[in-house]
Each structure stands twice: as C-alpha cells, then as structure tokens.
C-alpha cells in the first residue's frame, strides 16, 4: 500500500482546518473573504502582518513577511521539479505582469517552494532565470516551509513514485496581498486572465 504522508507543521493543522472551512463556504456562490492560516484570527482575513515565517530567496537574502509590507505582493507555492502546473503558473504570471505594464513595478512576486530538499536558493535561481526576472524564489528548511505554508493555509504533500522518486501535490492558487498585508484575492489555477489582472489591480490600488 502506498503511503502518502501529509506534511503539515503543527501550526499547519489549525491553518489547514481554517482553509477547509473557508472552502466549504466558497462553494455557495459569492466568495467570502478567504480565511485561515496563522495570519488570520477567527473571522479575519489572512494578513501578512500577522505571519511569522522567515525564508531565503534565490539571491540568498533573508525574507520575512514584514519585508513585503508597503507594497502589493503576489505569492504562490510550487516546486521546480513540477513539469506542468508550475511552468504554466510562471508563464501566466509573466503574462499578467506584461498586461499590468508599468504598474507591475508596484507588486512583488514570489514562488515559495514546497520541495526544499531539492529546491535550494541556487537551484531556484537557475530555474527561475528562464522566466520573468521579477519572480523571486523562496526556500528554507522543511520546518521553515511548513511554517510559511501554515501562514498561507497552503497544503502540500509528498507523493512517492514507483521508481523511488517523488512528486508534490500542492495548493496551486496565487495569493494577492494589499500593501497593508491584507489578503486581497486568490487567483485559481484555471482562472481566466481577464479576471486575474483586475484582481491584481485591485490589490495595487
């Protein structure tokens, strides 16, 4: 029997619970404010200013949520061994940044890896050099990643393959935050670009 270990930090359990509660509510029509993660208290929106993770970017710079305040930011989780979803998301984001024109300078874009074992800062840098140079890659220890994922109420899971290798399942939405740190919206993986760009503009303005 194939064992799939659900990787969630201790703090992540509460976050995942909040996330699932949020999903339950989403199914009924208008999206309510997304909730969950340690960045949110009961009934409150997720907020960068209440998160406590710290990661290293592909330039080797330490990054904490407070560093993102004062400017809009866009975050998504993925990994560079991912052949379908991740290049597609990276290219979607490049397209959105192009559509934003000069306003793209007013938003910070980051990929947080869910596969820190393989995605070191150097590996992230090498991979991301093929995409839009405005996209930074963040990594850390498995504990650091679990803490960040809990902050965003993001789920990820290691899936072993028959040949001994593995792949990762992960939350695929792009989280958009206002300069204040408050969550503005989540852009789903299969969402049309015509809806994505106005969502990003709303966070910037």
């Amino acid at each position: 029997m194939r064992r799939r270990g659900l990787i969630l930090g201790a703090a992540g359990l509460a976050g995942a619970f909040g996330f699932m509660m949020g999903l339950g509510a989403w199914r009924g029509g208008d999206p309510p404010p997304p909730r969950g993660g340690e960045g949110a208290r009961d009934g409150e929106r997720m907020d960068l200013s209440r998160m406590a993770w710290e990661l290293t970017d592909d330039h080797g710079t330490r990054v904490a949520p407070r560093d993102w305040l004062g400017q809009a930011s866009m975050v998504f989780f993925g990994f560079t061994w991912c052949p379908d979803v991740c290049p597609t998301t990276l290219m979607d984001i490049s397209g959105w940044l192009d559509d934003l024109g000069p306003d793209a300078d007013r938003i910070r874009v980051s990929l947080i890896t869910v596969d820190p074992k393989r995605d070191s800062p150097q590996v992230l840098g090498e991979y991301l050099s093929n995409f839009d140079p405005r996209i930074r890659g963040l990594t850390g220890s498995p504990e650091d990643i679990a803490k960040a994922a809990a902050g965003f109420a993001v789920k990820y899971e290691r899936v072993p393959r028959d040949d001994g290798d593995y792949t990762m399942n992960h939350t695929s939405g792009v989280y958009v935050f206002r300069p204040s740190g408050a969550l503005s919206s989540i852009i789903d993986f299969h969402e049309d670009r015509q809806f994505a760009v106005p969502k990003i503009r709303r966070a910037i303005e």
């Binding site: 699932m20 379908d84 695929s172």
Partner: peptide
Amino acid sequence: LHRTVVKDGVASM
C-alpha cells in the same frame, strides 16, 4: 500519461 487535477485548490497529477 498523467492528468493535472485541481481539487479544493490543491493540484495533483
């Protein structure tokens, strides 16, 4: 052959 599916916001293949 794989299929990317997104269920409850989580992508798997």
